[in-house]
Design a protein around this nucleic acid. Sequence first.
DNA 1: TATTGTTATACTCTATAACTATA
DNA 2: TATAGTTATAGAGTATAACAATA
Lengths: 167, 167
Amino acid sequence: MSKPDTPKAMPPEGPMLPVPGLDYGLLDGLLGYALRRAQNALYLDFYRATAEWDISPPRFAALVLIARNPGLRQGLLGQAMGLHRSGALRLTDWLTAQGYAERRDAPDDARAWGLYLTPVGKRLLVKLEAAVATHDRALIQALGDQGPTLKAGLERLARIATAPPTD
Amino acid sequence: MSKPDTPKAMPPEGPMLPVPGLDYGLLDGLLGYALRRAQNALYLDFYRATAEWDISPPRFAALVLIARNPGLRQGLLGQAMGLHRSGALRLTDWLTAQGYAERRDAPDDARAWGLYLTPVGKRLLVKLEAAVATHDRALIQALGDQGPTLKAGLERLARIATAPPTD
DNA sequence: TATTGTTATACTCTATAACTATA
DNA sequence: TATAGTTATAGAGTATAACAATA
């Protein structure tokens, strides 16, 4: 029970690295495919880093956002994470069912909730943040000079792709 | 009317760009979170580029791989895409149900299938490749000098994250 | 005994649509 | 009339487990 032998949030089976002898056609030239391969690798790395908890990248991000913004509205959580209202609801349901977060009435709007971490959630987050930050730092370190450049490039890419110039 | 008002494969609702006034804590410093934001933006861009077809990034990649490697085994397709056997099966089921691909007996192994695109699948892929390549080129162009650097950085990152140094 | 693929099942992540309550 | 959240439903994308057929 304490060690989930069968992790629940299901990461990909394996890496997407090039298989020798296989012709990838135009995929090899696409920035988008390179991004997907890297994303796949980092997902697997995230699951390795957090293997002892039943945590996925969206769940982790939600914990951080609620911790840093106590009283956060469900809707704003969804907006920050690119989710529909219903997705934010389900994520919040999971966090509260686990006892990591709780909904309290929002003082200024009777329709809305304010989200807060519980003491259990806060304690969990301390450990998660340490594990995730350690792995991320190791990656940045392995990249050397390229690390900061790559991160800046990704941030620029996200902005550019969100507001395409040609459309 | 020919435009499917109800899209099919479901992309995220919106972008993950920073929401002003929200504190992202350590997420802002993580390479992995920058990558996720960029991936989210490119996913949305992919769905814009292919809006008139019921296509997702994995489906597109599978079409390309089968086209360039006629007779590809289901298992090898899964390996290339980082999927479990059962995932490759479902992907192949979908492609054959749409009439884009077909399974034929593999000559050298009676347990296995060889996968082939149908004429319909080939015609679709021509259009898809044009749409996807156009959008990808626009992104690379918008990045200027940074484009090739970023792509090379992502490829290096995928390798590094797949074989972590500390393990 | 190991491998290729299938069947059955399950869970996450995401959505749409219709609804309630409040603003 | 618009917004915050809920309920109900659905589908893509993953997985595990047990199975059959073949190597």
